[in-house]
Simulated assay, not measured.
Amino acid sequence: MSTGGLLLVHAHPDDETLTTGGTIAHYRRLGLPVTVVTCTLGEEGEVIGDRYAQLVAGEADQLGGYRIGELTAALAALDVAAPRFLGGPGRWRDSGMAGTPSAANPRAFVNSGDAAVDELVAVILELRPRVVVTYDPRGGYGHPDHIRAHEITTAAIEAAAAQGWDVPKFYWTLTDADLLRQHTAALARRTVDELPGALPAGWRLPVEAELAAMSTGGVTTVVDVSEVLSAKRAAFRAHATQVSLAPSGREFALSNNIALPVLPEEHFRLVRGRRGQVEADGFEHDLFAGLD
Rank of each mutant, 00 (worst) to 15 (best):
A116N: 05
I152H: 03
E151S: 14
A159L: 15
N111W: 05
A122L: 01
A155Q: 10
L174A: 06
E151K: 13
A159E: 15
A159I: 06
S102G: 14
H150D: 11
A115S: 15
E119W: 04
R190A: 14
V132G: 01
W172P: 00
E194G: 05
L120Q: 10
D136F: 05
I157K: 00
V167M: 01
Y135V: 00
G113A: 11
V167G: 03
R204N: 07
I124N: 02
P144F: 10
G140T: 07
W203K: 00
W172A: 05
R107P: 01
A161V: 04
V121H: 02
A159M: 12
T100Q: 10
A160M: 12
I124H: 04
R148V: 00
P144I: 06
W165N: 02
A186N: 10
R190V: 04
D145A: 10
A161G: 15
H143S: 11
H183K: 13
V132W: 00
R148F: 05
L199D: 03
G113Q: 12
V192L: 15
V131E: 05
P101N: 02
Y141S: 15
I124L: 00
A155S: 06
R138F: 13
T175Y: 06
R148H: 14
D178R: 14
P206G: 07
I147E: 14
V192K: 14
R189W: 09
T173Y: 04
V133L: 08
K169Y: 06
A155H: 03
R128I: 06
T175C: 11
A156L: 08
A198C: 04
V192F: 13
E119P: 01
A185N: 14
V131A: 05
V132Q: 04
L127Q: 15
L127D: 04
A160E: 08
I152K: 04
N105H: 15
V110K: 06
G139I: 02
V131W: 07
H146F: 08
I152E: 03
I157Q: 01
H143D: 13
G202Q: 05
G139N: 06
A156M: 08
E151N: 13
L179M: 05
D166I: 02
Q182L: 14
D145P: 10
A198W: 09
P168H: 02
R107C: 03
D145M: 11
E158C: 04
A156F: 00
P168I: 03
D136G: 09
R204W: 09
W165C: 00
T191C: 12
P129A: 01
P206T: 08
A115M: 11
L180F: 15
L174M: 09
N105F: 08
Y135P: 03
L174G: 04
R107Y: 00
G113L: 09
A198I: 07
P137K: 08
Y141E: 12
T184F: 08
A108P: 08
H143A: 13
Y141H: 14
L180M: 15
V167Y: 04
A155I: 03
L125A: 07
E119T: 03
A185G: 11
H150M: 07
R204T: 14
S112P: 13
F109N: 10
E194Y: 11
H146K: 07
R148S: 10
A159W: 07
D193Y: 06
A122I: 01
G113F: 10
F170Y: 15
T173Q: 13
H146W: 09
R107W: 02
